[in-house]
Design a binder for these strands. Sequence first.
DNA 1: CTCCAGGCTTTAG
DNA 2: CTAAAGCATGGA
Length: 273
Amino acid sequence: MKFDYDSTCFVPADVLECGQIFRFEKFRQGYRVFSADKDCYIYTDGAKTIVECGDADYFYNFFDLGRDYSKIIERAESFGVPALTSACKKAAGLRLLNQNSEEMIYSFIISQNNNIPRIKLIISRICEGLGQKMSSPLGDFYAFPSSSALAAKEPEYYRSLGAGYRDVFISDTARRIAAEGIERLYGLPGDELRRQLLTYKGVGPKVADCICLFGFGRRDAFPVDTWIEKLYREDFGGTLTDRNKINAYFTSLFGQFSGYMQQYLFYAKRSNL
DNA sequence: CTCCAGGCTTTAG
DNA sequence: CTAAAGCATGGA
């Protein structure tokens, strides 16, 4: 099945290349996108962006299509920060995805002190090695593995896939989640979710913020990485060096809109838009 | 060769 | 509590 949506605030390249998702590839006229055990094909045709998939409800929510991003951009411009206004103009088709919680936990554990092309490569190897093979009208693909499948492998396996020293973080976290589940994390209030995420091996403040933002819909989170540090110095005239304090600066400035603002800023800076 | 990438854990002070 | 060393890997 397929459905469409106004392409003004839904541009596949902006949504996918902004660093929030690691499983996608150029495909036909647009992109093929993978999430958990599902896939879809998105492309823009004139004023519409079209989504072809087997589960429209899932991808409607996944692409956050119930939210009006023209209002998000209005709010962004209201802050009167030149770098942010400029970022919104250049990345107007960006949206925040609602991604699978467990997939985000492992993906961002792998992301630490790493670069995006290599993160994508390692994750794709893990899916091919441990994920269930799925059939789709768009072609066969591999689902993101379950925690129990991930838990069954030794750290050496992840090392062999190029994960480096993050090998033990992956297997330790997988074994814990395979035993405990993550259901207890849903519905946790305020910063309690963040505090709980910090108890997993390989999850520090920045990774926890990414998991909150992309995997739990916590749009008040503001991950601070090397790009945000750079942008904070160059575009906001900031002098702080402690990442926790930089995070506090931005979250107090942007409040409930922190996560959206972070993505516009991060994407525009990193992609040199 | 060094420096860097969506940083974290461990150890020292 | 804060500060810094150490950590795999591959591209620039």
